[in-house]
Design a protein around this nucleic acid. Sequence first.
DNA 1: GCCAACGTTGGC
DNA 2: GCCAACGTTGGC
Length: 141
Amino acid sequence: MATFLCKTEPDDYSYDDLVRDKRTEWDGVSNNAAQMHMRTIAKGDEILIYHTGNEKRIAGLATVTKSAYPDPENPGELASGEPKFVLFDVKPTKAAGNTCTLADVKADSRFADFALVKQARLSVMPVPAKLDKLLRKMAGL
DNA sequence: GCCAACGTTGGC
DNA sequence: GCCAACGTTGGC
């Protein structure tokens, strides 16, 4: 059981949209490193949904209902023959009870090595267990 | 295979 | 709206 953080532009697709839809296929990720992380996502894993843009905060928690699978629209292909683009399905679990912003995360030195802070433009990243615990506390999840 | 040009993400 | 930090593309 692992936790990942996924970025989304709330104007495009927000946590509230996920609550409304009950479930969704997490697609639209083209970045290679992000796709690599996505391939490791399995049913039962949990996703911290992070809103980019004006909000820059953790919006809520979601649970993976279907492990990573090839994108039926555009699976692509890696040198290994594996599909290049994968999706996973999620359902909403809990909306954030506290506002945990990027500034809050950056202000805490324990997150100094966290990909959200360190690596620009990465939209899907694994969350180490220690940081996961911290983030959930900060976001009221 | 290098690298300049270009496109995109996302914070500011 | 700007631009830094990436990734990708294409000419050579």
